[in-house]
Amino acid sequence: MQEQRQDADGFVYVSLAQLMAVEHRTRGLSFFARQPLSSILAGNHSSRLRGRGLNFDELRRYQPGDDLRHLDWRASLRYGKPFVRAFTEERDRPALIIVDQRMTMFFGSRRSFKSATAAELAVLCAWMVFHAGDRVGGLVFNDSQIERITPIRSRTRVEALCASIVGQNHALSASQPEAESADAQIDKVLQHTLAMAGHDHLICIISDFAGAGPRTLQLLRELSAHNNVIAMQVYDPLALKLPEKGRLMVTQGELQVELAVDRRQVRQPLGDFLTGRLKDVATLLRRSQVPLMMFSCGEEPLEQLRREMGRLNGAPR
């Protein structure tokens, strides 16, 4: 196991103790509700999440109050009396939490790095799944490594997911260059996810989706055909709005760059570039018909998740 960093403050690097301690904060939150999920950036785009799957139990005589949609017309015609197909709900459902810890995530201009925000979001999702009585697993990836955790309903499995996230999070460093094939890594991870998730899985993908392209779109559509998929895009506040005055100190680990954002020739192209990248990815995710939630690393992850879950549960905006 990788040695724990002494500078794990939760904003640049996370700790195992910190991630395990958020369990009680997820009480009352649920991914599955009666109302559709509407994203922050997607306007009118909405998508219903499937409930638990149903297993066929028995064929029996119709009783008053039975759902007429479950009438078995073939059996009813054969016996001259109405028969219905009875189903039982699956006891639990596997969930895969996909967590991005690539170098593109090792950036932050306010509050925390995207990598730390993604780590906390992932564990919040894992505890929500666990308390719903479902199995927890996932994939944690960086620029060159993909670690798979098979879904099991166990507190120790949540801890194993947390440990994997912490290990890859602590491996991030400003002196570490981005891999040349980083753009293809998101697609490789989704292919691994397809291999793990046959059908009726809940799949939460937590990433900045850097490098997403046409192949990503195709893979997301394949995943969502038989599973509940939620895209959680983590972004830095600079991508939406740059300060209008003064100088901006941006840090990426040990590296620091001072930007004179009050100069138009600096501010406008930088703002256009950052906003354009965010919108391009959001547009691609909308085309996949996968529900999209946006999370700023400048705000507390749990409060943002509560807002999104409120919309999911039909609460007013």
Score class of each variant (00 low, 15 high):
Q289F: 06
A282H: 06
L292H: 10
D272H: 02
P291H: 04
R306N: 13
L305T: 10
L302E: 03
L278P: 11
L292C: 04
L312D: 09
R307N: 05
D280P: 00
G271L: 07
V281R: 10
Q265Y: 01
T275K: 14
G271S: 10
E303L: 02
R267L: 01
F295L: 09
R277T: 13
P301Q: 04
V281Y: 10
G310I: 00
F295G: 01
Q289A: 05
M309K: 09
T275D: 14
P269R: 14
E300I: 11
N313G: 09
E303V: 03
R286K: 13
L278A: 05
D272Y: 05
V290L: 09
G310K: 07
L312N: 15
V290G: 11
M294E: 04
R267A: 03
R287I: 02
Q265E: 04
R267E: 03
P301W: 08
T283N: 14
R287H: 12
M293L: 14
E308S: 06
D280E: 15
E300R: 08
L285H: 00
G310W: 00
S288C: 09
G271D: 09
S296H: 08
L305F: 03
G298F: 13
L305A: 01
R287Y: 11
Q289V: 05
Q289L: 06
R307H: 01
R306I: 15
R277P: 02
M294R: 15
P269S: 12
V290T: 12
R306W: 10
N313R: 04
K279S: 14
E308Y: 07
K279R: 12
L292W: 13
M293A: 08
P291C: 04
M294V: 04
L305S: 05
D280V: 01
R286H: 08
K279T: 14
Q289G: 08
N313Q: 12
R277F: 07
E299G: 12
G298M: 11
V290D: 05
M294D: 07
E303A: 00
E308G: 00
R264Y: 08
R287C: 07
N313E: 13
L284A: 10
Q289S: 08
M309W: 15
R287T: 04
T283E: 14
L284I: 12
F295I: 12
L274N: 05
Q304F: 05
S296T: 13
Q304W: 08
P269V: 11
L270C: 04
V281M: 09
R277Q: 06
F273M: 14
D280A: 00
L292Q: 05
L270D: 07
V266F: 03
R267Q: 01
P301E: 08
T275M: 08
L285Q: 00
S288G: 12
E299A: 15
R307C: 00
P301T: 04
L278V: 05
P291V: 06
R306F: 10
M294P: 10
M309S: 05
D280M: 11
L292Y: 14
V266P: 03
T283G: 06
L274A: 06
F273Q: 11
R287K: 14
G310D: 00
R264H: 05
D280S: 03
L292G: 00
R267Y: 00
C297S: 13
M293H: 07
R264P: 07
F295K: 01
G298D: 09
K279E: 13
L274P: 11
G314I: 02
V266D: 12
P291I: 04
G310N: 05
L312Q: 13
